[in-house]
Amino acid sequence: MSEPGRKILVSLRVNGSDIECAIVPSKTLLEVLREDLGLTGTKHGCELGHCGACTVLIDGQPTLACLTLTLECEGREIRTIEGLAGDGELHPLQQAFVETGAAQCGYCTGGILMTASALLERKADPSDQEIRSALAGNLCRCTGYVKIIDAVALAARRMNGAA
């Protein structure tokens, strides 16, 4: 195998579990999540940081996994779409996406949910404009964003006990 292929061991904390795996140091977090850990819910749309499909949370911050080296993530809390639902229950955002029909092909959905979940952590009652701004880095080619924005607003209302 070619030279940059020498693997090293890294310790990662993903969706609340500690994982040790051997990786090629040049691998991005996106590649390690999908190829080494089998967490294929995180998607690739460009691998250049343009589309937002690979968004995960690192220490609660929405981060593009395609531009993040795995080595940078040691000791940090990584959360992917597979870790958004807890205790067998959908996250209110997931529930709202189901009910409003915010997922069409579903390919951008994981990244958008992660971005939106960070928004709602930061701001419990975001305005329409704040939702749009938060999602400005997530490309969706199916929905025109209408039902996505509706769903985020619905989830926010529910999390505040208003709906």
């Binding site: 999908r34 089998g38 967490l39 294929t40 819910g41 995180t42 998607k43 690739h44 992917t80 779409i81 597979e82 958004l84 639902a85 959908l90 997931q94 996406f97 189901v98 009910e99 029909g101 997922a103 579903g106 390919y107 959905t109 994981g110 949910l113």
Partner: peptide
């Protein structure tokens, strides 16, 4: 009726397998 799509759940949980997800 605007029922939730039957395949919405696998989409919002990231568990739907697209071609590149198959190993």
């Amino acid at each position: 009726k605007s029922l939730p799509k039957v395949d919405a759940y696998v989409k919002v949980t990231g568990s739907l397998k697209y071609a590149d997800d198959i190993v």
